[in-house]
Design a protein around this nucleic acid. Structure first.
Length: 288
DNA sequence: TTCAATGTTTAGAC
DNA sequence: GGTCTAAACATTGA
């Protein structure tokens, strides 16, 4: 479900709660959600402390005190729910009433932590996974996965972006933005939005992009990602005990999911097409 | 009933 | 090797 801004939002919220906690017990209710052997997964993390929560692309990394790390990928419909004596924090796919009566039928893994805290890993479509990796092997793991650069790191400059694009001249720009080996963390929502802001037709070949179009794309992509994090993502935020609010970026989407509605800039009816199997909304007049 | 859904991987075609 | 498409994973909700 979540893209970079949503995963980053979850990371920030969970980091404050999980850092310093000890994993007392792990219950795996659906073995296929664990990549690798379940007994090893349970054995290695039971009793370990969580030292920090970080992120690479759309993957969360729980670093443990014993030299291991747990990778968490929520894919389309994964959800993490943290509870501690009535206090609830959820992050991930919004599931109707999914936070009530936990564990529920979508709860696949349960971490019991000290201080009467619990972390639930829920996933409707069961696409997500948890995986145990040695801390020292994280870099190797990510490079084997061929994950591209982090768009919000300072070394991801316009020059670096341009250089990467030059290697992919024949690709269509929007599917390329979503290609995790090209840039890490950008999914369908923000790739669609970035093309709209940059006035670029999602089907454009990279080789046809002019210099100023590339810099527009670069600037808008980064701006959108940062702003979405500030707004706690499109759906990640969910303090259901307090307010029950969704992510605050959802109402700010300019083009994603608006097919059939008027373009906010020129009133032309927003169209959509299928690119790489994903629905892609665009304005036929604004996006050339 | 049919379709699409915030993700990724794989197989096959050109 | 590059690039594209469809299909697969499983479930919900419009």
């Amino acid at each position: 479900m979540p893209e970079l801004p949503e995963v980053e939002t979850i990371r920030r919220q969970l980091s404050a709660e999980l850092s310093g906690k000890t994993i007392k017990n792990v219950e795996v209710r659906l073995a296929k959600m664990i990549k690798g052997q379940v007994f090893r997964f349970k054995k290695k993390i039971t009793g370990a402390g969580i030292t920090s929560v970080s992120r690479r692309a759309k993957i969360l990394i729980f670093s443990l005190s014993n030299g291991y790390a747990i990778l968490v990928h929520l894919k389309m419909t994964g959800q993490l729910v943290y509870t501690k004596q009535g206090k609830i924090k959820t992050g991930g796919h919004p599931i109707k009433d999914g936070h009530k009566d936990l564990p529920n039928k979508f709860t696949h893994v349960i971490f019991k932590l000290n201080g009467r805290a619990t972390l639930f890993f829920n996933d409707i479509r069961q696409f997500g996974y948890l995986m145990l990796v040695k801390a020292g092997e994280l870099d190797g793991h990510f490079s084997r996965m061929r994950i591209g650069p982090e768009p919000l790191k300072s070394d991801f400059t316009l020059g670096a972006f341009t250089k990467l694009l030059l290697k992919k001249k024949k690709s269509k720009i929007k599917p390329l933005l979503m290609d995790q080996s090209f840039i890490a963390g950008v999914g369908n929502i923000y790739a669609t939005e970035a093309c709209y802001y940059s006035k670029i037709r999602p089907t454009r070949r990279v080789g046809s992009l002019k210099k100023d179009e590339i810099s527009k794309l670069y600037l808008h992509l980064i701006k959108i990602l940062k702003f979405a994090i500030k707004k706690q993502g499109t759906s990640a935020k969910n303090y259901i005990d307090a307010f029950g609010e969704p992510g605050e970026y959802a109402p700010l989407l300019k083009i994603y999911g608006r097919q059939g509605e008027p373009c906010l800039h020129c009133n032309t009816t927003v169209k959509s097409l299928l690119l790489g199997g994903r629905g892609t909304a665009y304005c036929p007049k604004c996006q050339v």
